[in-house]
Amino acid sequence: MNSLDLLTFARGTALNAALAVCAFGILLRLFEIFGLGRKADLSPARPTTPGSGWRTMYARSIPPPGMVRRDPVTYIAGYVFHIGLFITILLFAPHIELIREVTSLGWPSLPSALVDALAVASIIALLVLLAHRFSNPVKRLLTTGGDYLAWVLTLLPLLTGYLAYHHLLFEYTFMLALHILSVELLLMLLPFTKLFHVVSVFISRWYNGDISGRKGVAS
């Protein structure tokens, strides 16, 4: 199998398989979570605070007062990583073409050089966050194998994409195939690792905000 064959496999069979596993997993987990059900809360709600869930979705997306100063690495690197990744995925022209083909939705792209710079920023942020995870005793204690797996799964598409764009390490066709395959690995494991927060983050924030509001701890 030569590089173009590998790329053809990545764009065809492998992509179909990865999307199938991803869609299956996401729907399975969503149904499972929503189907859990809750016991009827027989106590009356505390002073009603409508919209607590919605406010929490926003409030937890920005750092609480004083926390950036207290833990700058986690917050700053966390934001740089997430914003960089978001833009790299959604505003790079070839990525938009893929989204347009699958969903019929499209939007303008950013210049490749800018996306490239943001991808580099994301990679650096990921490395900083890993180093911090090793050096901070509390974080180290809390870290499980799943966290390292999620880190690797996220780094690989960024790194292979960067190497492909700059024609580094391997020739472009092979590197592009590796890039697409690494994204497919990410897609397949996304529903079954903590990366599921891509789907569940705002659902859980709403739920936490709403249940807390009901108990009198409105945000």
């Binding site: 764009r11 992509l15 179909n16 999307l19 199938a20 996401i26 729907l27 990525h95 893929l98 699958v102």
Partner: peptide, 21 residues
């Protein structure tokens, strides 16, 4: 485009989503 899937994926996605549900 080079970044597009070679074969249509919508059918696969719909079937997988239905199976997941």
């Amino acid at each position: 485009a080079l970044s597009m899937p070679i074969t249509p994926v919508q059918g696969t996605l719909a079937a997988a989503a239905a199976a997941g549900a």
